[in-house]
Design a protein around this nucleic acid. Structure first.
Length: 251
DNA sequence: AACCAGGACGTGA
DNA sequence: TCACGTCATGGT
């Protein structure tokens, strides 16, 4: 709560305007390179045949350039479950878990809270941490039912078990189309490699780095985060570090 | 055969 | 505050 507000006096400094330009340039460059990513993926769309073979992650469920989702409360809830399940886990594993839940007809808040814990754990096992995630999913389900049509506050989300800053922002941005920028491990790797943040910069610093330099547009935030993930998957994997080859360094 | 994946939380210093 | 252990399956 101190180093975040690095107070550059009242007048706009050259650094600030440059930074703003860079944040925009990075987005433009990523979008030009990879195209719209179609996040958040919905397994509902898998059966509908939606697919994007260009992506490095899962092959299905994406809806590039279509920002109308979620279109229903059911899709909203699916996204929320996804944000919880994908914690420290690859999306392909989450997809298996979500499909298992769907087979059990348990991918609705009403069904999920009544589902017996053992069945729930078995269903989400591919996503790992199934003991805690099962508990937290049911907790999320009852919270979501009581929420009704209200849009939750960030603090409210953070008070839920298993919902930390990234999950809260993902829920706000993708389930509720609220402009809250999502910072994940990939985002952190990219901005530190580009010299836009220090390694020890905390979550809120990096979040503010984007939010302070972009218009508050949920669709822009959604696309930007998805593009950062796609880019990081190609150039910032820990095994095959290609940070030096990252073309964003020259923008 | 280690290492990592679209984190969060509890603990002790 | 903050570094560190824990939770757990399946890819590469």
């Amino acid at each position: 709560m101190k180093k975040n507000t690095q107070n550059f006096s009242s007048k706009k400094t050259k650094f600030q305007t440059t930074l703003r330009t860079d944040i925009r340039k990075i987005y433009d460059c990523l979008l030009a390179s990879y195209g719209p990513q179609g996040w958040w993926p919905l397994i509902e769309l898998c059966e509908a045949g939606g697919s994007n073979p260009v992506k490095t992650g899962s092959l299905k469920g994406y809806h590039p350039a279509d920002y109308t989702f979620p279109e229903s409360r059911s899709q909203q809830f699916e996204i929320i479950c996804g944000t919880l399940l994908t914690q420290n886990t690859s999306w392909t594993q989450v997809e298996k878990a979500l499909l298992n839940l769907k087979k059990l007809n348990a991918l609705s808040p009403e069904a999920l809270i009544t589902l017996c814990p053992e069945l729930l754990k078995e269903a989400i096992k591919p996503a790992g941490y199934y003991n805690q995630k099962a508990l937290r999913l049911q907790n999320l389900a009852s919270w979501f039912m009581e929420l009704e049509d209200r849009v939750p506050e960030r603090e409210e989300l953070l008070s839920l078990k298993g919902v930390g800053p990234e999950t809260a922002d993902s829920i706000l941005l993708y389930a509720f189309k609220t402009p809250s920028f999502v910072v994940d491990a990939y985002t952190r790797r990219i901005v530190t490699n580009l010299g836009l943040a220090d390694e020890k910069a905390d979550y809120n610093y990096i979040k503010a780095l984007f939010e302070d330099n972009l218009p508050q547009d949920p669709e822009l935030y959604q696309e930007y985060h998805a593009l950062l993930v796609e880019h990081a998957k190609r150039y910032y994997q820990k095994r095959t570090a290609m940070k030096n080859a990252c073309f964003l360094k020259i923008v």
